[in-house]
């Protein structure tokens, strides 16, 4: 089934088309969300949210971009929303702990190990993922889509609704920032 036919069937509410769509793109959505939120459970939750959103708003898809590009956009937006919610909760918990309402100790999340990384690179990749999580949003998205999801600069620019030269610039800044963060990490490592 080609993409246009699939979208038409989805708009008609065809359940078989919905199942086909989910099975075709579920790992792409999950892998993108995992690269951004760096937590397997959260990434699955986001993947579900993405497909619920597709089910509810397929009528608004006009076909101006590829269906996969639209899916990537929803995934990125949902992942960033999730990150913001998590940060808000963390800040709120911190304030509550300061005023003594909450006695829970705030623990930093453990290192993230992406299941697709080659075994020899596990430790280095965990250090890199920690550095990626500290990048500004745009740089983080561009870097993750390119390096983790394997999209070309052209595809990244379509997902981020920007130009290829802007993506090149984002990638250049992301690499420089990552280099500085990694240098600091290795210099101060006990």
């Amino acid at each position: 089934m080609d993409e246009r036919t699939l979208v038409e069937q989805l708009k008609k509410g065809d359940e078989t088309a919905f199942k086909t769509m989910v099975e075709t793109w579920q790992n792409m959505v999950y892998n993108t969300a995992l690269g951004i939120v760096q937590n397997a459970e959260d990434a699955e939750d986001i993947a579900q949210e993405v497909f619920v959103q597709v089910y509810q708003s397929i009528g608004s898809f006009k076909g101006e971009s590829k269906f996969s590009t639209w899916l990537y956009r929803i995934t990125v937006t949902k992942s960033l929303d999730h990150e913001r919610r998590k940060k808000r909760k963390k800040r709120f918990a911190f304030v509550r702990s300061l005023i003594g309402e909450q006695n829970e100790v705030l623990v930093n999340p453990p290192d993230f190990h992406h299941p697709g990384v080659v075994l020899d690179n596990k430790e280095n990749a965990a250090v890199l993922f920690r550095a990626i999580s500290e990048l500004p949003e745009n740089q983080r998205i561009a870097f993750t889509l390119n390096k983790v999801e394997g999209l070309s600069y052209q595809e990244v620019s379509e997902v981020m609704k920007t130009t290829v030269s802007s993506v090149e610039s984002l990638m250049h800044r992301a690499k420089n920032n990552l280099r500085k963060k990694l240098e600091d990490y290795y210099k101060n490592r006990p």
Partner: peptide
């Protein structure tokens, strides 16, 4: 080494019965 650690990364896959 750290910057190149994502070379050849495989895509993560969901647990079965996601649908």
């Amino acid at each position: 080494e750290a910057l190149n650690s994502l070379e050849g990364i495989q895509k993560a896959e969901l647990q079965p019965y996601f649908y």
